[in-house]
């Protein structure tokens, strides 16, 4: 991911030191590879922690598998696969997300879930125009943190059915090689 314009907007951030209460958003930070992401805590239903996903053969590559959750079988999106990172065999951390309408609950498998950070909504930086199409779909701007940029994610766009609709992501790659690496 290349954020060419990472220094832009610093001045704007310095201008309104006094932030309004309503502008504060708490984000749950999560990690995939070396990058950090954030999702609005209001859209996270539960953090399940480390879970082993049951793989689904023939499923699109971005589907990490299924995981039982309160009497339901949740489809979990493999975030690493969405970012085109190679699958790491370690057990991943699963979050349960729910969009506003509560229509479809699904899981998101990431490497690790960090803590909750509070940011000012007005500090959100737009996606850079140089971002490729997939990145534009997945990311919802970024916040400048001391440790680096935290890319905001929109659960609505991570919904498995939406991902399938966009057709931006590889449809069916769960071949023999993919599955066997996972199971050694």
């Amino acid at each position: 991911m290349k954020f060419s314009d990472r220094d832009e907007g610093d001045a704007a951030g310095a201008l309104d030191e006094m932030q309004e209460e309503s502008d504060a958003v708490s984000l749950c930070s999560l990690f995939a590879g070396s990058e950090s992401f954030g999702i609005d805590t209001r859209k996270i239903r539960e953090v399940l922690g480390k879970r082993e996903l049951q793989r689904v053969p023939m499923a699109p590559a971005y589907i990490g598998g299924v995981v039982p959750y309160r009497g339901e079988v949740l489809t979990a999106v493999n975030f690493r696969a969405l970012l085109d990172m190679e699958d790491n065999s370690a057990v991943s951390c699963v979050l349960v997300l729910e969009d506003d309408e509560g229509a479809e609950r699904f899981g998101l498998a990431v490497d690790e879930v960090g803590g909750v950070v509070t940011v000012n909504r007005r500090m959100l930086e737009e996606n850079p125009c140089t971002l490729e199409a997939r990145g534009k779909w997945l990311f919802d701007g970024a916040y400048k943190m001391q440790t680096g940029l935290m890319v905001q994610l929109d659960p609505k766009r991570l919904r498995p059915s939406r991902l399938a609709e966009t057709g931006l992501f590889k449809q069916c790659v769960t071949g023999a090689t993919d599955a066997s690496t996972d199971r050694r």
């Binding site: 023939m58 589907i63 299924v66 339901e72 079988v73 489809t75 498995p160 059915s161 399938a164």
Partner: peptide
């Protein structure tokens, strides 16, 4: 338990 629509589409 039902599967989500994406997985139903696999058809198997």
């Amino acid at each position: 338990k039902p599967l989500s629509s994406v997985l139903r589409e696999i058809g198997l």
